[in-house]
Each structure stands twice: as C-alpha cells, then as structure tokens.
Design a protein around this nucleic acid. Structure first.
Lengths: 257, 257
DNA sequence: ACAAAAAAACCGAACGTTTGATCGGTTTTT
DNA sequence: AAAAACCGATCAAACGTTCGGTTTTTTTGT
C-alpha cells in the first residue's frame, strides 16, 4: 500500500506473491490434464481436494526421507486415506513421482516467461530472472526441493525431459548475458558458464533453505546478494554508466572509490 | 617438467594429483580404524583388496539409482562376491552408508587444511581453497556426489555430523574473507553469505559433472572462472593494487580501462 | 619341502519382513 | 437407485540378513 507520490516496490517477495497468485487449483488442473489416463476420479471437486492433500503429504514425507523411502502405507497415514483410495489418483508410485516432478518445472517455466516479457533491458532482465526464479522457489519450496533431489530416480525417458528443463532455464540466463554483451552492457567471456554459476547459486537457496533460515537471511536479501555478485563481475564500464537504478537501495559504492 | 628458468605451475589439476597422492590404501586404512568393530575380516590385505571393490561397486550403483535402490543382491552382482561374504566387511547396509559418507568428508578436511597451511596471504588463500576443494572433488568424484546426495538419509546422529562438516568448510571460506576484509584486501559486507555462494558453486561442479564434461569445461577452467568471479566482487581497490600475480594468465584487463 | 591341521573367507539357499498393488465389499454422494 | 469414492485384508515379489556347509589360505609339525 504505497502512499501517493511514493514508488511501489515491484521487486520484493511479497509483491511477487501478490502478482503471480499461485493458484493451487490451477496447478491441480494442469496435473489432471497431463495424467488424464491414470486418474480414476471423476469429479473435479473431489480431485482438487484430495490430490493436493496427497501432494502435500507425499512431498512432506519424500523431502524428509526420500521418495523411495515413502511407502504407500505411510502416505496413507499422512493423508488419512486408505491405500486403495490413493490409487484412484494415480496409477502407481512411478506415476506419482512423475506428477510431482513435472509440476514444479512446468510452473517455473510458465511464470519465468511471463515475468520476462515485461522487461527489455538486459540488466533488468537479469535481475528479474534471478529474482523471479528465487521467489518462485521460495513460494513452492517443497516442489523445488523434491525436483532437485529426486530427478535422478526417474526412468530415462522422463529424466531426459527433466534435464532439458534444467538446461532451458540455464540457457535463459545465458541468452540474457549474451544479449547484454552484444549491447556492450556486459563483459563476459563465457556467458553459458556464468549462467551455470548463477543457476548453482539460485538452486542453493532452496536446497539449503534450512541454513539460510537459521541465519535469518530473507529471500529478498539473498536475491540482492546474488544480483550484486553477478553484476560486479559481468557489468562492463559502459554498462555501469547507463545502468538502470536499483530498487530500493543502490549498489554499494565500494568500487567507485 | 619445467625447463630451467621457467616457473613450475603448482596450481593445475595435474600438479594437484601429483602432490596429494591420494593413496587408496590409506583411505581404506582410515575406514578400518573407524569401523573396527563391524568388520569381521582379519587380514588387512584381503580387506584392502575387497573393501575398495565394494566401495567402487556401491558408489557406482548408488550414484546411478540411489543408495536405497541398491540392493545387497545388486551389490553382490557388481562386486562378484556373495551376499554372505559382503557382511564380513560391514555389519549392515546402514553401516556401509556411514562408511561411504564419512570418507569423503574426512579426506576433504584433511587435505584442505594441509594445502591451506602453505599460504598466508588471504587472496592466495582464497584461490588455494577454491582450487583445492574443486580438485579434490574431481579426484574423488563418486565420493563427493554420494555424500552430497545421500546425506539426508542418514540417521539424525550421523546427519548432524555431516551438516557440521559442511558448515566447517563454509566457515573456512568465510574466515579467509574476513581476514582479507580486516587487511583491507577484500571489501565484502557479509563474508558468510559470500562463502555460502562460493560453496554452492564448488558443489555444482561435482553435482552437475556430466554437464560440464559434455561442454568440455575442465576443472582448471572452472576453478579459474569461479576465482575470477569471486575476486571481481570481493577484491577492494586497495587489494587490486597489491594483489599477487595470477598464474598462468593474469585476470582479464576488462575492468581496468 | 610338504602334508596335515587350523584359521580365514566365501557361498547361496532360506527366513521373516516389508513393499507396491489389487479387488470384492461397503459407505458416501449425486 | 445409481454412480462415485473409499476401505483394508490380501497377494506375490523383493528386501536385508543369517547360517551351516564348503572352499581357500595360512600356519604348524616333521
């Protein structure tokens, strides 16, 4: 709620949540579309109610003990449904794994592209890409953690798709950097390699979430740190001259004397 | 083999391998010391021969399918030993897990400290720490990958120790940065946070090893990139003046004109 | 040096559990 | 009353681990 004359902060995590409105119902719908054949439940209302409950339970158990350690009996206990009932919502454990895997990735790409469309300057693109990715992982932490940790347990067919998704978001970072280099804003010898490092740092946020929580590092702070870090390396002198202003505080003056 | 008058390159991966001489026999010995009670094999020669074979097999299967997916029967097939024979080398699957987990970490800390003792300047320390960590993970890739992926499946007691090890190497980076800040060489607002990011990049090397291999990125190149990246952000103006020369090529001149 | 005896290491069938998945019967919703 | 959803005992398969018997290696006795 910005007072008149004040500039609203569009870059914070809270603003992000307000903007994207991660409708759980919509997530459920997409999963249903993708696994129509495996789901025996007919009415969408019951599906939405229980499928999300199953997802929550499966993610909670899996992210603590690993997907393979989660038994149908433990999932039954966690969700309050019988083992038989569970099989109305997926055709088997493998199928459930695939549901949990693809959802995070699909949502990521969806929202990342959407956020990206609103900016054009490479420096702004870089900031938005890093922020959006981090905020998204924060909003859907269990999904991201699960996807990261369980990807290797997929069968080759689905694994290939997961890897492709990983490379695609990495390429998005690389494209931004390359465009910036062409425009003289960035000076980076190997954009793809730097993109890998950026992705590594972004992933660390949700893989080691417990660590940053214990230290009181907010996702806003983490995002700011990553962006400062990258820009200190990537932004050329020319880029520094005409760089868009940062919000809410400008980058430290350290480097300019 | 440097010709006279030429400076030998002590910083490359090959030089590292020559220097540390990762004796597999020694690794085996340390494991034996730590699990004396669980190992029924009496003669050290047979132990050394077969325990390493078991480790290799267990790491190969686990790193592909996950430790929990590795059955004693599959391990038996992989090693060519019977399931009964395997139990002469560990008291149970849990015990084997603990062996595989602790070895990588113990070796890391051992060699990291050793390498660190030979340098004093913070900038040099930073470079050595990053390089040593990366080179070590390259030399013991299966161990590092296993430790990273399976840490969460440990029982609370051992997990706590694994986490402590993770934080300790992170603190090592942080200490170097802090010392550099005190000496006016670095300018970093939050050394511990930057240390986390450095560790994230180092870990990405062995977690995503396949990716970098496919792109032809050598560990030397990766190390150089990480170091350049960190220094661009962390080194203060004052630090840049009196920075030790890089080997073999100096950092790009981009930033100074 | 060599065979007999003792020690060490190995084998794999077998056991008791636990697992993913099924299905006929029951309850709930439409 | 028909359709949808749920229940939980039950099954076959797969799991970690054990153990009595066998093979291999080392030590001992001469």
């Amino acid at each position: 709620m910005p007072t008149p004359g004040e500039i609203e902060d569009f870059s914070g995590f809270k603003a992000f949540l307000r903007r994207v409105n991660l409708s759980r119902r919509e997530i459920c719908r997409e999963v249903y579309e993708a696994h129509r054949g495996a789901i025996k439940i007919k009415k969408e209302k019951t599906l939405a109610k229980n499928l999300l409950r199953i997802f929550d339970g499966a993610l909670r158990i899996s992210n603590e003990k690993g997907f393979r350690a989660m038994t149908m009996r433990s999932l039954s206990r966690e969700t309050g449904m019988s083992t038989g009932a569970l099989y109305g919502y997926f055709s088997g454990k493998e199928d459930l794994l695939e549901m949990l895997m693809s959802t995070g990735q699909r949502t990521t790409w969806h929202i990342l592209r959407e956020s990206m469309a609103q900016v054009s300057h490479p420096l702004e693109k870089l900031r938005v890409a890093v922020r959006t990715h981090l905020f998204l992982s924060e909003a859907m932490l269990p999904w991201f953690y699960f996807g990261y940790m369980e990807a290797r347990h997929l069968d080759p067919r689905h694994k290939e798709r997961a890897v492709a998704g990983e490379l695609r978001t990495e390429q998005l970072f690389a494209d931004i950097l390359e465009e910036g280099v062409r425009m003289g804003i960035f000076a980076v010898s190997n954009p793809l390699l730097l993109a890998s490092l950026i992705k590594a740092m972004v992933q660390d946020w949700y893989v080691k979430r417990w660590k940053y929580a214990k230290r009181g590092i907010s996702v806003d702070r983490y995002a700011g740190q990553v962006i400062d870090f990258v820009e200190a390396y990537a932004v050329s002198l020319e880029g520094q001259m005409k760089a868009p202003r940062r919000t809410p505080v400008a980058r430290s003056e350290r480097r300019r004397k």
